[in-house]
Nucleic acid binder design. Sequence first.
DNA 1: CCAGTTGTTGATCACTTGGTCAATAAGAGC
DNA 2: GCTCTTATTGACCAAGTGATCAACAACTGG
Lengths: 206, 206
Amino acid sequence: MSTLSARNRRKTPAERAAEIALAARQIALTEGLAAVTVRAVAARVGVAPALVAHYQPSMNVLVASTFGAIVAAEIDEVATELGACRTSVHALAALIDTLLGPERSTVTAVWLDAWSLGRRNPALAAEVGRQMDAWQKFLVDLLEEGVTRDEYAVDDAPALAWQLLGIIDGLTAHATVRYGDARTQRPLVRTIVEHELALPAGTLAP
Amino acid sequence: MSTLSARNRRKTPAERAAEIALAARQIALTEGLAAVTVRAVAARVGVAPALVAHYQPSMNVLVASTFGAIVAAEIDEVATELGACRTSVHALAALIDTLLGPERSTVTAVWLDAWSLGRRNPALAAEVGRQMDAWQKFLVDLLEEGVTRDEYAVDDAPALAWQLLGIIDGLTAHATVRYGDARTQRPLVRTIVEHELALPAGTLAP
DNA sequence: CCAGTTGTTGATCACTTGGTCAATAAGAGC
DNA sequence: GCTCTTATTGACCAAGTGATCAACAACTGG
């Protein structure tokens, strides 16, 4: 076989670490954060289980960093997608559209796993806190950008950001667990945001 | 010791089943749904692990029924608490106050566990669906009671019930995972409900 | 008081988990 | 070529999981 040439090749620590991290991310997204185990990651990389343990101080931190990487990638992805919007109002509308879209269910499942596993995994709990802060900061920046552009006024951007994140997470969680479609929840979120920003009704409509 | 008289006493299946169910509920509330294991339950009841397995077809269904019992008890508790309200508007205000209260964090943690574990436990997933439906039905009944009393009008009570549950679950989940205090989220939920029911601003305020 | 029913137990199995450690072998530098 | 570093492995261990089954013993009906 042509792949035989790659057999038994020794890789640099950086390469291996990247491979392991990638495998862990894929497992987490397809089978859940709880399925990220030494043996599962090792099997996916095609390597002995001991090697995974060798590259990671403990499984708890691998799970935590895997979660962090997945969420950080999602934030980046959404950020670049929203970068094309010329106004903050457009960005907000696009954000609602994206975050309540059906393709987010896999990441939402990872969030649910993290919330649950975080009670027994301190490293994961810390990472959950970091990523929630990152999302909130992202939303605060987005909200305040609109304020400086005089598109609307907001009383307490940090608090409003937390509230909106809570609402969105709850609706997407429900949609992931039970209701296949979160699309129907979008109008409600649009109305809430319009009301909180004192925007005319329908401003955020597509 | 005086308790020696109870040693080695044989109990009726109903008694044992009740003991096991109670122990499972206590473990779930204090250590999480994932801590409900054969041995943990047996140890708490003070009985051999095999006996727990004898009374339960499988651990998956014990976890599922434990979750169901906890949530059902919560619904009953909230229902009786709201029974004292004379108007539906008062009941809604009380509901928001109760559901976003800080003492609910233990039950919320159980919900988070169930959402996560449900993906690997079909019996639990089914029970999660049942209890979500039960909560929605409860809210629909509450909303429609107010309509028949001409306190307000509601367009689509079932949809609104789902939306409100999603919002409340998201905010309480955030509060449980990260911020200890969900109290600050209450005004937002009150505003949303007032808006959706076309009630004057401040109607649901305490 | 004795036999039958059945609640209850101890022992044990097969499996999975995270983690350790000496031994191996691939590659780098001389 | 050789030696030295180190990535990599196989073989483990201890702990925990759900589940099964023959044996035991506490009641119950006769």
